[in-house]
Design a protein around this nucleic acid. Structure first.
Lengths: 165, 165
DNA sequence: CCAATGTCAGGTTGACTGATATGC
DNA sequence: CGCATATCAGTCTACCTGACATTG
């Protein structure tokens, strides 16, 4: 069997798109690239986080607590800051409580509310994960700092346009 | 209540990262930007695809069939081309069969194999979705064609480095 | 016998909807 | 009272692992 050259799925998709006479190839190419690289970033992070019993979503939430001034935040605040559904916060916090990385405590003034507070073990996991994530360069080892800045700048335009913040 | 300025979650995360004396802020910033924009792209696509009963995964698979020479491919080929697990292909094809967009037919020569073939209705859905996706510019309306090219180029470096193709 | 193909069972994750109790 | 907060039940999607029957 002849050696089939290793194909780039992004370029293939764009080629076929154009072969059908459809427009917008440049943006399609960029969109598919972003989607692929997002998967690569997630894969690199997962490799670091999994041995620490952290999924991506759990790590995001736990980091937010780690960085917050008193290591605790109301669940509703977590929902808005992480831009995820309130019910998702409930289940993610559940799993973190079960792991012993977070505890639920009653809101001091609003008795409807609940705070999630990071535990010492939770802090230890974040502290352990961070140097490893740095060392992996978040999956973006191929980019120079300047190139990373260019990517950030261009994508910031997209985020502003979409009302991301 | 005073007007709280609208915050950028990406910049906040980077600021806190640095406040803890950790390295790699530029790549973190780029990685978080990519993750956010990927979500925005998916949201824009979902808005188009959902009324057509297509999830993102179903649309990917169906497009591949639509673009293939005879509208049919072996399931294993779908797995490798889409870079998803064989079992995921089975379930995604299942759902497309139930919707009437795809049919399973026996492989003509290899009796172990099965082909997925796109139906006329399946073709109609892809044909209907494409102009809408173009019109939405795949969620990347904010980028000029030149900027989209820059993004693609930089991310291609990352993909090559990670062995994406 | 070994390798490949597709399927199935079982589990995890993440997110949504709608209903509900509680308290502001 | 209306509104906000968090939870719960149930559903859905997508993906994985490991086992399996079938065939090349």
């Amino acid at each position: 069997m002849a050696d089939e050259p290793r194909r780039d799925p992004v370029e293939e998709a764009v080629a076929q798109w154009r072969a059908h006479g459809w427009e917008g190839g440049e943006r399609l190419r960029a969109a598919l690239s972003i989607i692929r690289v997002e998967e690569l970033i997630r894969a690199a992070s997962t490799e670091v986080l999994r041995p620490l019993d952290l999924s991506y979503a759990r790590h995001e939430l736990l980091s937010l607590l780690y960085f917050s001034s008193h290591g605790e935040l109301p669940l509703g605040k977590l929902s808005s800051r992480l831009m995820v559904h309130p019910a998702s916060v409930t289940t993610t916090v559940d799993s973190l409580v079960k792991l012993g990385f977070v505890e639920r405590i009653p809101h001091p003034t609003d008795r409807r509310g609940t705070l999630a507070r990071i535990t010492d073990e939770g802090r230890a996991r974040i502290a352990a994960s961070s140097p490893q994530l740095v060392e992996r360069r978040f999956g973006l080892d191929a980019l120079t700092e300047e190139e990373a800045r260019v990517v950030t700048e261009l994508l910031r335009k997209v985020r502003v346009d979409c009302g991301d913040f």
